Amino acid sequence: MIYLWFIAAAITEIAGCFVVWAWVRLDKSALWLMPGLASLAFFAWVLTRAESDIAGRTYAAYGGIYIAASMIWMWLVEGNRPDRWDLTGFAICLIGSATILLPQRG
């Protein structure tokens, strides 16, 4: 279940950041900022839904998912297919995320 929250967080964070990118770098209207800010606020709330007692560990594990989602965004939204180095980094990040998140600690 935690990975579903991470995926939702990644989508909302990337979307929110992308609208700022579009406003600054692609000359889009400042009106783009309103849904972008709402998306970023929703991202922050969604990330708190991840079941973990330690925020730092949650954020670290989420980082791997964010990187993976960024590669998917680059491919599907921006039309730039990941190369072998992107895919290698993608795999390393997912392994790192699972290594942080999945062990039972006691």
Rank of each mutant, 00 (worst) to 15 (best):
I65F: 12
I95P: 04
A91N: 14
F90V: 03
M71H: 10
L94T: 13
D83L: 13
R81E: 11
F90N: 00
A98F: 14
I67C: 08
I67R: 06
L94A: 11
G79D: 07
W75E: 00
I65L: 09
L76K: 05
R81N: 01
S70R: 09
A69E: 08
A98D: 05
L87H: 10
T88W: 02
D83N: 14
I65M: 09
A69G: 08
G96A: 00
M74A: 15
I95L: 11
E78Y: 13
M71K: 07
L94P: 08
A91K: 02
L94D: 08
W85C: 08
I67S: 10
I92E: 03
I92W: 02
I65D: 04
G89R: 01
D86N: 12
E78R: 13
I72R: 13
I72F: 14
T88E: 04
V77C: 07
A91F: 08
I95C: 15
I65H: 07
D83Y: 14
A98W: 12
L87A: 00
S70D: 03
G79H: 09
T88F: 07
A98Q: 06
D86A: 10
R84T: 00
A91E: 07
G96F: 04
A68V: 08
W73L: 00
N80V: 11
I67F: 07
P82V: 15
I67N: 06
L87C: 14
A91G: 07
A69S: 12
S70M: 06
A91S: 12
